[in-house]
Design a protein around this nucleic acid. Sequence first.
DNA 1: TATTTGCGCAACTCAAAAGTTGCACATATA
DNA 2: TATATGTGCAACTTTTGAGTTGCGCAAATA
Lengths: 104, 104
Amino acid sequence: MKQDIFQAISDPTRRAILTLVAIQALTPNAMAEKFDMTRQAVSKHIKVLHECELIRPEQSGREIYYHFNAKKMQEFDNWLAQFRQNWEIQFNQLDELLSTIKEQ
Amino acid sequence: MKQDIFQAISDPTRRAILTLVAIQALTPNAMAEKFDMTRQAVSKHIKVLHECELIRPEQSGREIYYHFNAKKMQEFDNWLAQFRQNWEIQFNQLDELLSTIKEQ
DNA sequence: TATTTGCGCAACTCAAAAGTTGCACATATA
DNA sequence: TATATGTGCAACTTTTGAGTTGCGCAAATA
């Protein structure tokens, strides 16, 4: 099943995993220790993140270190770009409002 | 039920609605015409987006125009900020790699 | 070689979310 | 006033997703 990055970050556990691996690469066991759920549950989250390439595995003997993939994360930034214009406009309107209040 | 913006943007229909209303405010009927589903299904997506304040209603007679709320969308941008450092680092490493190759 | 450890896969349960139909209600229009 | 239109709410079905337990396999260790 092809995963979608927006669906991937909709789960709080997966967002926490991303925050952890952004600091340093971790094995599934190391991640599971941080959460109050079974290793297999965490493993399923890892699978989702891996399928959409937000993390990348690095095999080391019988251990697997998962690394953060910053390049993929940038796709969110690209999606957000379409709205940047909107918030600039809304802030300019706020500025105008504040100026109007000040003048009165 | 309190909605969360990550869950809200995880659905492709809701992302499409956001793209539409970012351009101009629309009524539920106007939105429903754009999608291959019933008006009520679209209405439920609108409800989710409204509950987490990504859109804001403006009543006009019996019609309701939903507006994009850029301020709320910025929360997503703020979350992304924690990873910006990561992609700068990964890009610097790429730069170094390219330099190394060039020197050889 | 026997045992432990780290991991992924499969089957299952349970809860949540997406979509449907039907209805009620208020506003617009004839 | 009678009818049509725009909307939200409720009940229901179906799909999806999170979590569990149980298993098998390969690498490390005794």
